[in-house]
């Protein structure tokens, strides 16, 4: 019975000298190790609003809201931190690899859940004919840049590229065109409308 007591005494003395292992957390900030998976912070400059993160998020914590009624139409990418599981999939599988980064911030406790989000807003390019979404403008520009000379085969990408250089006209979105014309090939169209232009003639019949 003596030895266990002595051992306890020894560790009590060590604890007295070394002090407690725990830190005084709320009063002293805790600095996590580098590479810590904390709150994901989107980067307004680097994010292209492609929505890849929303597709890979296991917790469905990233929401994509397309607002077609605003002028110009907007896409909102919203990170809901109350649903987030801090797995880092959005960072790992980001299209540009820089659009969102996990920060070291972990202490997100709050009384008001509705404050736990952050948002990216990007302009959408919509089909000139039917008004369907073609993609986020910066996403098209990113694609054009990545494809380089190969992008010139795609009018939507060329348009996006030209607009970045300020040499393009403003898009007249959502004008329902009654007659399909060959020249429609050089307008910004969604894949469905482009198919119509390519396959049918003015009378609506296949040539």
């Amino acid at each position: 019975m003596k030895y266990p007591k002595l051992r306890e005494l020894k560790h009590a003395v060590i604890a007295l000298i070394k002090g407690p292992y725990t830190s005084k957390f709320p009063f002293e900030p805790h600095v996590p190790a580098p590479g810590f998976r904390g709150k994901p912070v989107p980067d307004t400059k680097e994010c292209i609003a492609c929505g890849a993160c929303a597709n890979v998020c296991p917790a469905r914590a990233i929401e994509i809201v397309d607002r077609l009624e605003t002028n110009p139409p907007q896409r909102e990418v919203i990170w809901h931190y109350d649903l987030c599981i801090y797995c880092g999939q959005c960072e790992r599988l980001c299209t540009t690899e820089k659009g969102v980064k996990l920060s070291a911030e972990f202490d997100l406790a709050t009384m008001d859940r509705s404050t736990l989000w952050s948002k990216i807003e990007k302009e959408l390019v919509i089909c000139e004919d039917c008004g369907a979404i073609v993609g986020a403008r910066e996403h098209l520009q990113w694609l054009a840049k990545k494809l380089g000379p190969l992008s010139s085969g795609n009018i939507n990408l060329t348009y996006a590229e030209q607009q970045e250089l300020n040499v393009s006209h403003d898009i007249k979105s959502g004008l329902k065109n009654a007659d399909i014309q060959r020249s429609d090939l050089y307008r910004v169209l969604c894949p469905k409308c482009r198919h119509l232009v390519l396959v049918f003639n003015q009378t609506g019949k296949q040539p």
Binding site: H11, Y21, A33, G35, F36, R37, Y86, C87, G88
Partner: peptide
Amino acid sequence: WSWKYREPVLDIFEKISGNRQHYA
């Protein structure tokens, strides 16, 4: 004692995986 010695293990996890639990 036991939980004190467990704490450094969780620190290792934080360093190599980015989290104390749910290492992903």
